[in-house]
Amino acid sequence: MPHEETFETVAGCRIRVMRGGKGEPLLFLHGASGASGWLPFMDMLAQRYDVIVPEHPGFGASDTPEWLDTVGDLAYFYLDVIDHFGLDRVHLVGTSIGGWIAAELATRSCEKIKSLTLVAPAGITVPGVRKGDMFMWSPEELAQNLFHNQEIAKAMPQPANEDELLVVLKNRLMTAKLGWSPRFHNPHLRKWLHRIAVPTLIIWGDDDKLIPTAYGTAYRDLIPASSLEIIPECGHLPHVEKAQEFTSKVVNFIQGAA
């Protein structure tokens, strides 16, 4: 499925956007490792939807604006992005930090949102359940801990040149800026998750070593019209590790929610 890449300026910030496919709009919000490439799951979703994949401000080829301090800033930014593209009844899908942004966005306004899919989202804390500390992991440990299947972990491409390494460092810097403390959550978010007024699917890998599945149960209990689907033998990145299964779940959910 072909996709195009453009740069858009929203709220004074220039961001890189990949877009492909036809159908209802689907806005995908990436996680800590960014969105430098068009991945197989995007291609699969693009067969049914108009898939829009921005790189967050502060990540990859996008600018780092002065105003960016918190995930809440990005939630408002993406409300602006939705207006910028003139999107309506958009399917919002976010993973990890992107899931956190999506949840924050939906607590602010669901006016333009038709469905919400949260994939192992950060954003809340479950007392007594420790998350993994990715900032203490070496690159090798990070790969091991993000995946269930260690063959896939080993096959993950490492930065091939200085430019790619710089992107990795830039993404890591912004990940720290947004999630160092409180660690990958906003203590106030859980108070307002009840405001999410659209059908919500929560997807989690059963072997997520970064954000344990107990966080999925907590999210499900906090968001009114939500269901939780656990993908077996899967780590923190179901859209990468189990792309086919992930895509079917998203498609089935969106069709049911329509």
Binding site: F135, M136, W137, S138, L166, L169, K170, R172, L173, T175, A176, K177, W180
Partner: peptide
């Protein structure tokens, strides 16, 4: 380890 000594943001990119 390096991750402990040099957390992201401690040094310029």
């Amino acid at each position: 380890p390096k991750e402990m000594l040099l957390p992201p943001g401690y040094l310029s990119l």
